[in-house]
Amino acid sequence: GVVKDIINLTVYGKAQNRSYNRLALFTDTIGNRVSGSENLNKAIKYMYNALQSDKLENVNLEPVKVPHWVRGEESAMMLEPRNYSVVILGLGSSIGTPPEGITAEVLVVASFDELEKRAAEAKGKIVVYNQAFVNYGETVQYRSFGAVRAAKHGAVASLIRSITPFSISSPHTGWQDYSSDVPKIPTACITVEDAEMMARMASRGTKIVINLKMGAKTYPDADSFNTVAEITGSKFPEQVVLISGHLDSWDVGQGAMDDGAGAFISWEALSLIKDLGLRPKRTLRLVLWTGEEQGGVGASQYYQLHKVNISKYSLVMESDIGTFAPFGIRFTGGDKAHAVMKAVMQLLKPINVTSVDPYGEGTDISYWLQAGVPGVSLNDDISKYFWFHHSNGDTMSVQDPVQMNLCAAVWTTVSYIVADMEEMLPRN
């Protein structure tokens, strides 16, 4: 009756809404937690104390060096055809502008292809990208490489339509990458509304001039930590099921959805197992990553440190795609392991969350997956996830306690059973 006990405790019993309430206290107390910030340091200390108070085992901090980028003051004032304050959020790693800003005419393009065709017009301009949202993976290329592609043709700055399918004049930030062989130019995201407005203006032949000011600065890498806690295995303590989410966030909103909730349902899994008096045969290790938003920096350093034990990792799990109404899990692994996971998920019939779809993924577990370790991510209703992602809208108001209970039930069931089975998950 283990799964029944897990469901009863988290969905109907004394632990219901606990992960939501813990997350609310955490985010209301700490706020957002960008890499290198004092807030992130406070968050790590908070969690270190909380995990110890929860009487989890081997609570420890693993040192990590993380990027330290600070946004500073920023603005974009349209000077022609009319005075208008364009809503912006600078993109992570962007350089700043001179104090007086950069004033330049705008070139609006709808795609990289159009930019290439109109490359001769880009020199000395601020390139505005008004790319359509196709899906996150495809469209995020504009955020990641928009500045480099524009600078290659002599642009002085780039403004990129936020990577979201829906907007109420909400800019969405995120990391962007420079290239060593192209001059660095300031880059920020703008709202869907402003991108479309400038595209309309440009299509009429209207000249657009913007003064862009960004006070962004990059400091030397900062000290940070991956936060680790365990329930030690009873029979194979050296073997590990890793369950995780990331503690850092962007510097807007509260980082409640991305990825406070993922981190907190992972913590909840260990809490529930402990509350039920269970101890799996293998060690269940909680890792709350740092520096995920800068490209999985904490996860990369964890992998370098622990890959020597890769043969002992039965399963790696990461929740970083929301904790909305769950459908089941996504799984990366061989056919036999996939069949095992299907059998595990059948145990969750009482809450009707049984699907096992391919492509378990997550930035922080990607190194392990590439090396052949089976991996799981949550499969939940992400239809609104990118509405709030990396924006001021990522707050507790996005979260639903009942949905978090269901996600916690899935997360706990999968992690506990895989950690408790007689054999590790088979690998191809």
């Binding site: 059948q346 408790d420 590790m424 690998r427």
Partner: peptide, 25 residues
């Protein structure tokens, strides 16, 4: 590069594993 990935489990038949998992329900 990681050490060679252990083959993990796989000694037991899927039927055996499924029966074991069913025991958690």
């Amino acid at each position: 590069k990681p050490m060679q990935v252990h083959s993990g489990g796989g000694e037991r038949s899927l039927e055996d594993i499924s029966m074991e998992i069913a025991g958690y329900s």
